[in-house]
Design a protein around this nucleic acid. Structure first.
Length: 583
RNA sequence: GCAGCUGUAGCUUAACUGGAUAGAGCAUUCGGCUACGAACCGAAAGGUUGGGGGUUCAAGUCCCUUCAGCUGCACCA
């Protein structure tokens, strides 16, 4: 049942004006911020010009017409249509406010829920379409620090959301395993490799080497030039370089896998930059053929001034070696052919805005179908900084993700000591990691963030553990009540108090929230929604006795508890957060 | 210099295509565990939405301008 549809029909009939369509009316209908103002509101301001009347007059007139047409007793505010869905209409300062029967709201929400039950929130809008999500993409031989956390967590959640909406999703980890940065490491290892024992904490040692070689490069331009040459060698298949490259890559992957396991993040492909090393010539050929490549200071570039981008895109460096833009373009070609994607989403920081603008523009010159070039989306997010400033691997100031997760887990373990929980180890992990994940998802992507350990380890208020806690509570209530989800004989009138209605209305709009966060590629919308549901349940729980001798009321309230449980579990699943049985 | 993003309570932030009294959490103060879990609930206090113009019946939201912070602007990714 679509209340908005019903209301727009009522208004449309009462207006009886050909200039305004029913759809238009439906679009104008809002949900008032304050509950006392009703369930739906129609602002009459827009009609003022058409009807040449003051908004409050329009609202008054409409109200009269609506009440009259539905009730012989014109003085009453009540509307007694057959279905008695709309109980009351009010005209307040230019708004026409509608009050829907609470029992109908409850009934409607329960019907909607019952169609899906445990699958509540699953959608099929993406059927037959494929979405690629590129995220995480850490650099080999560099520490996985908290700067990589956002892309990993947001990307994972977006993948879950798209999958939930019926899309075929493929998650891509575009490993940073190539380029001059890598050659620098090889050069450093050549110089000082013997000083380090890579059998323990290899990444720490490699990043130490990386730091040293960078310092040397800054001092001595010649060393930097050597590194560029070394990269050229690597690209040409030099055995020594390739072997080292493989060794470093293996060491890194082991460390990354540990973190991905903890976060429960999985990838369908780890094809990193190096994977495209033999696929770049085609990009250059096509651009050449289309007359898009020009020489500039020895390098080959694509000029983008025509499309409003002042900086040209470098495709080939002066020494003939490749650059990341070329590899990204080769990846677009490859992905279009391999996956036939409808959308390809890049979850990468906002500092790369220009880069993606450039490669998306150049991609249009690759003779690809518009379906692909229009499906490229850069989902950017703000920077993470430390209180003392920007993080830098080169300078060695950063917080490792593993350390953060360890701290979160040990803190939740501490709290767990006082609780009667069976598998404390496992639950501590779920809660600690849930806290870290939620912390990264609850705010709009675009905001910069100063990393605050205390905030990341906070388990009270608007946090992951709070939502987990409420979900666990729904579980234990249902367990204690020996609830049977198949007993759907519910007296809806028991659930018409303010707290129940608030909760039910939230649960009812779960699908709209999912769609909204998908369309905006913004998991924070879903994260905040989860807080709202959890918090509404908490109020409901405190105000109502759920388990009682009155079986009818126990049934109804348990059913609402059950709906809450499923909604929360499914919402958290989309965010990538697990729910323990007890905590 | 040019371009982009951000600016809302002490701190972190929300606000559907512009809509009614700008909504939360943390911190602070107060109240609540012999009903189903207090990682909880309730209440108080806290705001010139960075400043100034403009458009509109209506601006945190749109336009202009200005200030502050961040980011990017050729061989790193």
């Amino acid at each position: 049942m679509d209340f908005k549809e019903i209301i727009s029909e009522i208004i449309f009939q009462a207006l009886n004006n050909t200039e305004i369509s029913k759809e238009e009316i439906k679009n104008y209908i809002e949900i008032p911020k304050e509950e006392e103002k009703g369930d739906y509101a129609f602002p009459c301001f827009r009609l003022a010009k058409i009807l040449k009347q003051a908004p409050n007059m329009i609202a008054d007139n409409l109200k009269e017409k609506i009440v009259n047409s539905n009730n012989a007793n014109a003085t009453s505010n009540e509307i007694n249509g057959n279905q008695s869905i709309i109980e009351k209409v009010e005209s307040i300062s230019g708004y026409l406010n509608f009050f829907v029967s609470k029992a109908k709201i409850v009934e409607n929400a329960i019907d909607k829920f019952n169609k899906q039950k445990e699958d509540y929130g699953k959608l099929d809008l993406g059927e037959g379409k494929t979405i690629l999500v590129e995220y995480s993409s850490p650099n080999i031989a560099k520490p996985f620090h908290i700067g990589h956390l956002k892309t990993t967590i947001i990307g994972n959640s977006l993948k879950n959301i798209y999958k939930n909406c019926g899309f075929k999703t493929i998650s891509l980890n575009h490993l940073g395993d190539y380029g001059t940065q890598f050659a620098k490491l090889i050069e450093g290892y050549k110089r000082w490799g013997k000083e380090y024992d890579l059998s323990e904490n290899p990444i720490d040692k490699l990043s130490e080497i990386y730091k040293r070689i960078n310092e040397l490069c800054e001092e001595d331009e010649k060393v930097l030039e050597e590194c560029r040459e070394t990269f050229k060698k690597l690209e040409e298949g030099d055995e020594y370089c390739v072997n080292l490259w493989n060794e470093f890559k293996d060491l890194s992957m082991k460390e990354f896998e540990r973190i991905y396991d903890l976060l429960n993040v999985k990838f369908d492909s780890y094809n990193g930059e190096s994977f495209y090393s033999d696929k770049m010539q085609e990009v250059i050929d096509i651009l050449n053929k289309n007359g898009k490549l020009t020489d500039s200071q020895g390098a080959k570039v694509v000029d983008l001034e025509d499309v409003g981008i002042k900086a040209p895109c470098i495709i080939q460096k002066a020494n003939g070696s490749s650059i990341y833009a070329t590899r990204d373009l080769a990846a677009i070609l490859y992905r279009a052919r391999t996956y036939d994607f409808d959308k390809c989403i890049y979850v990468v920081g906002e500092e790369q805005n220009l880069h993606f603008k450039q490669i998306f523009a150049v991609a249009k010159y690759l003779d690809l179908d518009e379906k692909y070039t229009n499906g490229l989306i850069h989902v950017s997010y703000g920077m993470i900084m430390l209180p003392e400033g920007k993080m830098s691997t080169r300078k060695g100031n950063f917080v490792k993700v593993e350390d953060l997760l360890d701290e979160a887990i040990s803190k939740s373990k501490e709290i767990m000591q006082e609780k009667n929980v069976e598998d404390k180890e496992k639950v501590a992990k779920q809660v600690g990691i849930g806290a870290v994940i939620f912390e990264d998802l609850k705010e709009s992507r675009i905001k910069n963030q100063v990393f605050d350990l205390a905030e990341a380890l906070n388990f009270n208020g608007e946090t992951g553990p709070y939502i987990q806690y409420m979900t666990v509570r729904t579980k234990s209530v249902l367990e204690k009540a020996e609830f049977n989800p198949n007993d759907v004989n519910i007296n809806v009138n028991i659930l018409t108090d303010d707290d129940s209605i608030r909760l039910i209305k939230l649960i009812e709009k779960f699908d709209k929230i999912i769609i909204n966060s998908m369309e905006k590629n913004e998991p924070s919308i879903l994260a905040r929604y989860s807080i709202d549901v959890a918090s509404a349940y908490s109020s409901f729980y405190n105000e109502n006795k759920i388990i009682s001798d009155d079986k009818e009321s126990q049934n109804a309230r348990c059913y609402l508890t059950y709906m809450t449980k499923v909604t929360l579990i499914n919402a958290l699943k989309l965010l990538g957060i697990e729910v323990p049985d007890k905590m």
